[in-house]
């Protein structure tokens, strides 16, 4: 993939103005989408599919905080999700256990919604930390740990979403 930030004319950093990304995504996609070339020759159509696919992929990468953070670290030569690296603070491990227990004991939508709020707050807190660690301090070791915690928080959020479905009939 060519540089995801450059594709949208954005500065490569973790802090991101979502509205600017969305606007750039729409502007770029409007130029390359296959629908704009429905009657063009096969070479152009193939190019359009490839470009539009790459634009969608870059947008997904930049939109999601975990993917964006991982992308920036990988560009700096660090693999944040190296399976050999299992370091995680005791405090965060305790926090994980607490969230898990809350998820398992949730018996109604209200309990899930309360947990969802706590998780969202933790995610925001980690994102602020990443802005500092990646953009200001270039603290790659610290950023890697924060990112791995944020990835856990994101997965936790997905589990909460699927738990909601068990209450739908």
């Amino acid at each position: 993939m060519s540089d995801a930030f450059a594709l949208f004319g954005l500065t490569p950093r973790f802090a991101l103005e979502r509205a600017a990304l969305d606007a750039a995504f729409r502007a770029v996609q409007a130029e390359v989408h296959p629908d704009k070339f429905a009657h063009a020759d096969a070479a152009t159509q193939r190019q359009a599919v490839e470009r539009a696919t790459a634009v969608n992929e870059a947008y997904q990468t930049l939109k999601a905080p975990v993917a964006r953070g991982a992308y920036l670290l990988r560009q700096a030569g660090i693999e944040p999700f190296d399976p050999a690296n299992t370091r995680m603070s005791t405090a965060f491990l305790m926090q994980q256990i607490e969230w898990r227990e809350q998820l398992e004991s949730a018996t109604d939508v209200a309990a899930l919604e309360a947990l969802e709020k706590r998780i969202a707050a933790a995610a925001r807190d980690h994102e602020q930390r990443l802005i500092r660690q990646i953009d200001a301090e270039a603290d790659r070791v610290g950023a890697t740990e924060t990112l791995r915690e944020l990835r856990f928080i994101e997965k936790m959020g997905e589990e909460i979403q699927s738990a909601f479905e068990t209450f739908d009939i």
């Binding site: 594709l7 949208f8 770029v28 409007a30 130029e31 390359v32 070479a43 190019q47």
Partner: peptide, 17 residues
């Protein structure tokens, strides 16, 4: 014309941005 098409698309993206 594949490469030409690619360059023209890049150019239109630059204009849009």
């Amino acid at each position: 014309t594949g490469e030409f098409a690619a360059r023209r698309m890049d150019a239109s993206v630059r204009r849009a941005l």
